Amino acid sequence: MPETKWNSNLTAEQLVCFKNKGTEAPNTGKFLHNKETGIYTCANCNSPLYKSQAKFDSGCGWPAFYQEISPNALTYHTDISHGMKRTEICCSKCNGHLGHVFEGEGFDKMLGLPTDMRHCVNSASLNFKKE
């Protein structure tokens, strides 16, 4: 994969999230409580990632989505950092770190969602386009 080009308009926090696989502080992201209809895009390359209809309140402190906008929007990587095994998600276009996917938490039954997956995404990794 070619070296990722980082958008010159990204903030220091966004660069830490994207490049260093950082995580913004819980309950601080600008999109955590966003209820508007639209598309969430990659803050680095503007690639479409999630529809607002797939967003739900998981109570985890970060925006949560039950599925990506299309099958090729994200790449998935095994992450064994922090003493646990998780699935890291990245933008498939620029390879910027978005967050992690968690399965089997029961949100499908609790909230009537079509999947039992929670994409836990940094607001810092996202932009939002209203429809």
Rank of each mutant, 00 (worst) to 15 (best):
E3W: 00
E3D: 12
E3L: 11
K5L: 13
W6T: 05
L10G: 09
L10A: 07
L10Q: 11
T11H: 05
E13N: 14
V16C: 00
F18W: 03
K21N: 15
T23A: 07
T28S: 15
F31S: 04
K35P: 00
I39Q: 11
I39T: 15
I39P: 12
Y40Q: 10
C45Q: 05
S47Q: 14
S47P: 00
Y50K: 08
Y50C: 07
S52H: 06
D57A: 15
S58P: 01
S58T: 02
S58V: 05
G59A: 07
G61L: 01
W62V: 04
E68Q: 14
A73F: 08
A73K: 11
A73Q: 10
H77K: 15
T78D: 12
D79V: 02
D79I: 05
I80K: 14
I80G: 03
G83T: 00
M84T: 04
R86F: 10
R86V: 04
T87H: 01
E88N: 03
E88Q: 13
C90D: 09
C90T: 14
C91F: 06
S92D: 05
S92F: 05
K93A: 15
N95H: 15
G96F: 04
L98W: 06
G99D: 05
H100N: 03
V101D: 00
E103Q: 13
G106Y: 12
M110N: 07
T115N: 06
T115C: 07
M117D: 06
H119M: 00
V121Y: 02
A124F: 03
S125N: 07
K130Q: 13
K130N: 14
